[in-house]
Design a protein around this nucleic acid. Structure first.
Length: 125
DNA sequence: CTCGTGACTTTGT
DNA sequence: TACAAAGCCACGA
C-alpha cells in the first residue's frame, strides 16, 4: 500500500487506471489506450502514461506498452535500462518480445471483456 | 479559467 | 515499414 501522502497524490482517475493495470493477467500486455479505455478514459492514452509514470512500482507497469502499429505494440520508454528491464520481465512471464521491442498484440494483447460497456467515469473537476 | 506538458494514437505520405 | 503532423484527455501552475 502506498504511503498516505502518495495516496493523496493519485487520488483521482489515476486510481482507476492502477486498478485496470493490476487486472491485466500475467503473460499478457495492454496498450496505454487500452488501459485508459477500460479505466473510463477513451482517448486518454497520455493520461494512462502519466499515471504509470507516477506509479513508481506500485503497479505492474511492464505489462503496459505503447502501440506502434495495428498489429504490434512497442516499448516506448525513454530509459534504455527501464526498457531492457521491462523486456526481461515480459519474457519471464512468457511474452515473446522482438528485437525492436515489439510485441504481437494478436497473441499477447489483453482481451478484456469491458470493451463493449462504454461506461464513462464522471469527471472530478 | 487559460496555457503548457506528456512512458500516446491515428492517419497520411 | 518508417517518419511527420494533428488530435486526444487530464493534471498542474
Amino acid at each position: 500500500m502506498p504511503r498516505p501522502d502518495e495516496r493523496k497524490r493519485v487520488a483521482s482517475l489515476y486510481r482507476g487506471i492502477y486498478a485496470t493495470i493490476r487486472a491485466i493477467p500475467k503473460g499478457q500486455v495492454a496498450t496505454y489506450g487500452q488501459v485508459a479505455e477500460v479505466a473510463g478514459i477513451p482517448g486518454g492514452a497520455r493520461v494512462a502514461a502519466a499515471a504509470l509514470k507516477v506509479s513508481d512500482g506500485q503497479v505492474p507497469w511492464h505489462r503496459v506498452c505503447g502501440k506502434a502499429s495495428r498489429t504490434h505494440a512497442r516499448i516506448a520508454i525513454l530509459d534504455p535500462i527501464g526498457a531492457a528491464m521491462q523486456r526481461a520481465m515480459l519474457e519471464s512471464e512468457g511474452v515473446v518480445v522482438s528485437d525492436g521491442g515489439r510485441i504481437e498484440l494478436a497473441i499477447y494483447g489483453w482481451r478484456s471483456r469491458a470493451r463493449s460497456k462504454k461506461k464513462r467515469a464522471p469527471r472530478r473537476k
